[in-house]
């Protein structure tokens, strides 16, 4: 049990008005400093699981602990530990990149001098320094994604939760984001929990992988082990074997 940074215990969630649970009795352990990839087709329940992990929704049943804190009864403590990068680009379109990041950083309670320093650092690494005074609405999809990412990193969370951070962007942006995440994982010891539809990217990036489908956990483990135990060569092969070829939603 030691080393387990996140402990997800038999959680289920049934949305009001739907017949099948979006998340169905899932248990996962996530080691400290690992990069955990949650994979699954559209509508598998990834975002729902993340919402519960962040303490945004209460699971119908089951519990989640982050660094030993219950996400519901000790939500204040868990929220201090986590950083979230939502699937949607949740930025204020009419504000500049700088203003957006300043606002969100202040919402995280970061002291202003330190905040400015951190924003500049991240902007530089992700190649957005020159655009910082432009309005978000003028940004390309890849630029928005990168700003969206920075917003979740500023307060140096111990657990970084990313919902499809590389969706809909070019290889350059994708590579920049993944490399930045790898660096943070190594240098700050940040545990990363992420979802993606890019299976090769996940295979390269993640130390651990879980595949869910229709709310249920199908397989999980260290990336290489998962490939091995399913007698495949790549995660993509595993994925297709498990989830089949039919459309999901």
């Amino acid at each position: 049990m030691e080393n387990q940074f996140v402990e997800i215990q038999n959680i289920s969630k049934l949305y009001k008005g739907s017949l099948v649970p979006a998340v169905n009795n899932i248990s996962l352990q996530i080691k400290k400093q690992s990069v955990f990839g949650l994979l699954g087709p559209n509508g598998a329940g990834k975002t729902t699981l993340i919402s519960m992990l962040c303490g945004l929704f209460k699971p119908d049943s089951g519990k989640i602990f982050v660094d030993g804190f219950n996400t519901i009864s000790e939500s204040k403590k868990t929220k201090q530990i986590i950083g979230v990068v939502p699937q949607e680009i949740a930025l204020y379109a009419k504000l500049t990149a700088w203003e957006n990041l300043m606002f969100l950083g202040q919402m995280y309670g970061i002291e202003s001098v330190e905040l400015k320093k951190r924003i500049n650092e991240h902007l530089q690494i992700l190649g957005l320094e020159e655009n910082k005074n432009q309005q978000i609405r003028t940004f390309s999809g890849g630029m928005k994604r990168r700003i969206n990412l920075i917003a979740g990193l500023l307060h140096h969370p111990k657990l970084l939760i990313l919902d499809e951070p590389t969706v809909g962007i070019d290889v350059q942006s994708k590579t920049a984001i993944i490399n930045h995440l790898k660096k943070i994982n190594k240098e700050q010891g940040t545990t990363i929990f992420y979802t993606s539809h890019h299976l090769d990217e996940a295979q390269d990036f993640c130390t651990h992988i879980a595949i869910i489908d229709e709310g249920k956990l199908i397989t999980e483990g260290e990336t290489n082990e998962v490939i091995k135990k399913n007698n495949c060569k790549t995660i993509e092969e595993v994925y297709l074997n498990i989830t089949g070829q039919k459309f999901r939603d």
Binding site: C54, K79, Q80, P86, E88, I89, A90, Y108, G109
Partner: peptide, 21 residues
């Protein structure tokens, strides 16, 4: 709109009180 575009999601996952927001 904030609820739909995920801003509320982000704000709600911050440790500060949503009431303050």
């Amino acid at each position: 709109r904030e609820r739909d575009d995920g801003s509320a999601f982000r704000l709600l996952t911050m440790s500060g009180s949503y009431l303050n927001v």
